[in-house]
Structure formats: C-alpha cells, structure tokens
Amino acid sequence: MTPLESLIDATLRKQPLRRAPPGFEARVLQLLAQQAARPWWLQGFNRWPKSAQLLFLPLAIGCVPLLFRAAGSVTALLQSARQSAPLSSAQSAASTVGSLGHAAQTLGDLVMREIPSVWIYGGVGLAALLYAALFGLCAAAFRTLVLTPQHAQY
C-alpha cells in the first residue's frame, strides 16, 4: 500500500454512516401502504393471487382457439340465417365479421395443410420471440417514462 492509498483508506474507513433523511421511514411506510391499497390486477404479475396467476395462462392460451371456433360458429349461423331471411344492417355487419373469421379459419387450415410443420413451429417461435422483445421494449419504456418521472432532473 502506498502512503496515499493507506491514508485515503484509513480516512474513508473512519467515515461514519450517512444518516438517512428525516421522514425517510415514514415515506417508505406510506409508499408501502399505497402499494397495498392498489387492486391486485394493477400490481405486478408476481403479486397477483396464486389462483389468478394459475388461471391467467390457460385462459390467455385458450382464448385463441376459442375465438377461431366462435368465428366459425358465427359464420355458420349467419349463412343459415341468410338463407332463411333478408339481412338487417346489424346482421350484415355481423356477417362481415363472421366472413373474416371464416377466412381466417380457412387460411389456418390451408397453412396447416400446405406448410411444413417445422416452418410453422419456427414461425410461432419467432413470433413469440418478437412478442417478448416488444414486451421488453414496452416495459422499459413504461419504467423510464411513467414510473420514474421524479428523476427527470438528472
């Protein structure tokens, strides 16, 4: 150790701890109370009730095929209604939505039949990766722009 190093080392080691600002403890407790008062769905996923966490994933995954099936059912319903009675404007709009669903279903069938499964799984993997990247970007933007406005002066 050089004399300078040992002097600075001794000086810094003798420094007492800095005292936390007055009211620090109260502010932390207040923040904790505010956090606890927020409804669970506004808190982070890891703070959701276990039951909600367990239900969320199957629900989110299960929604996709359900939507396809619902679209197919609506199309079938509207086609049978069209044959039996003239369409109202609401029915016409619903028919358009149903047609879109039907087209999506047809496209899905075509994709599954014509494209090799490796490509499909690869595509799904890529989509998941892109989704995760987008999610990360949005989370970073949210943390930077929304959660930390008090630090903007730095």
Binding site: L17, R18, R19, A20, P21, F24, R27, L31, H151, Y154
Partner: peptide, 22 residues
C-alpha cells in the same frame, strides 16, 4: 443509514440516494 450511505456515496447525489434507498 447503511443503505442510504451506500446509495449516497455511490451516486454522489442525496436526492437520488433517497429514491434508491426507498
């Protein structure tokens, strides 16, 4: 005090250190 000291000495900014300690 320990947490605040660590943050204050590393950041060199008391206001920032308070946010970090919180």
């Amino acid at each position: 005090d320990m947490v605040y000291s660590t943050a204050a000495r590393l950041s060199g900014n008391d206001a920032q250190a308070e946010d970090i300690a919180q």
